[in-house]
Amino acid sequence: MASGTELTADAAQGAADLAHEAGSGGMPQLDFGTFPNQIFWLLVALVVIFLVLSRVALPRIAAVLAERQGTITNDIAAAEELKQKAVAAEEAYNQALAEARTEAGRIVAEAKAEIQAGLDKAIAAAEAEIAAKSAESEAAIGEIRAGAVDSVKAVAKDTAKEILGVFGTKADSKAITAAVTARMKG
């Protein structure tokens, strides 16, 4: 049986060779004598490829892809978390800034009030001093004025006495004083 198929194969091979040598362009693809050989080795190759791929390569690649997917998911989650933290930090910063601004405003207002108070006090003291000084001055002026009036009276009396003395009249001191006082009022 085996030798029979071999014989057939040989015959086919011979025919193909003959056709080829005759230059009729016999296609090697249609040389059926080589079919068992090609099919056998193709099956061997396919089985080896299938075993290599399905037993080793594909599970390995699937594992790597799954691991990468997991890593990416984790990294994205971590990034999301960090982003949240950054947002929180920014909020805290803004809040601190606002607080600092309020505090600064308060301190400025306080300082202003303090300065104003000091200023008011100083102004009041100065005014009081000025008032005292002017009162004092007024008193002195009053005194001087009074002094002046008395001096004028005395001078007027003396002058009147002298004038009367020149005219030969013995001046009555009392009458002169009364007259000068009356004139001074007028």
Binding site: P36, W41, A45, V52, I61
Partner: peptide, 26 residues
């Protein structure tokens, strides 16, 4: 003569294909 088990140029290039696949995937 080419028997079913004869090592031919087909065998060689099928084997090279298998080796290339092993090289890339293993």
């Amino acid at each position: 003569p080419i028997h079913w088990y004869t090592i031919t140029n087909v065998t060689l290039w099928l084997a090279i294909a298998v080796l290339v696949i092993i090289a890339v995937f293993i």
